[in-house]
């Protein structure tokens, strides 16, 4: 039982250990929850970091390769996720109602069941990637941060319905993300382009003068 911070439960410094470490143990229920909590706190921290960033903060011109890769995979997963939801929703009022109906009424329909399994799988992967991003320097990409806060709300709804055992937790998590998203909306206006936050490196002297 290790309580020290020296070994945070996801080691990013060592590249060979993947963040999906959680999944190898079979039952990852509570583990999943603690990761969710950690992810949310990471995003909240990122928002604070962005909010109180120094005026002279230097933003990297070149985005880290690892970050890029995660972002790309997240975008792909998000696309898949949204498509699945659209598929489930069909022409009805909202996908939430349809999903609930699917889970509770049509458990014996193989096609729909396979749809559900796929959704569960994609959402799980999505959450893992969202977590992976949260462990990186996401505060340097505020617009994407806002997008994630929005996307995660939907993922929470899906998990709320799929994981009945922790529906209360996921609902609360969703509300927390709604709050986060609202704050980010105020913080980053729509027209504010991501690029404008990326500033060029200033020389040390220039920086010091401003301080």
């Amino acid at each position: 039982m290790n309580f020290d911070l020296e070994n945070p439960y996801i080691e990013y410094d060592s590249d060979d250990i993947p963040y999906s470490l959680y999944e190898i143990h079979g039952v990852n229920k509570i583990r999943e929850l603690s990761r969710q909590l950690r992810t949310f706190l990471n995003y909240k921290t990122a928002m604070i970091q962005y909010r109180f960033r120094p005026k002279t903060a230097t933003y990297p011109d070149r985005v880290e390769e690892k970050y890029k890769e995660t972002e790309r995979s997240l975008k792909q997963l998000a696309l898949k996720f949204i498509k699945l939801l659209a598929n489930i929703r069909g022409n009805s009022f909202s996908y939430e109602i349809e999903l609930e109906r699917l889970v509770f009424n049509l458990a014996y329909d193989k096609i729909r069941k396979s749809l559900l399994t796929e959704l569960k799988d994609v959402t799980q992967k999505l959450f893992t990637t969202i977590h992976a991003l949260s462990e990186q320097e996401i505060h340097l990409h505020p617009k994407f941060l806002k997008f994630i806060a929005n996307l995660t709300q939907e993922a929470c709804i899906v998990f709320k319905i799929l994981n009945n055992w922790a529906s209360g937790f996921y609902e609360e998590l969703r509300v927390n993300y709604v709050q986060l998203h609202d704050e980010l909306t105020l913080l980053i206006p729509e027209e504010y382009a991501e690029k404008s936050t990326v500033r060029k490196h200033k020389s040390l002297e220039e920086g010091l003068r401003e301080w």
Binding site: L5, I30, R31, S34, L37, R38, L41, I48, F52
Partner: peptide, 27 residues
């Protein structure tokens, strides 16, 4: 601003890893 930062600054992330340790060892 200070009050705003209290939860994160004072150790909400640490709580998360603490909770994690406890539930992990439970499992």
């Amino acid at each position: 601003s200070w009050v705003y930062c209290i939860t994160i600054g004072r150790g909400a992330p640490i709580i998360s890893s603490y909770m994690d340790s406890l539930s992990n060892s439970y499992l």
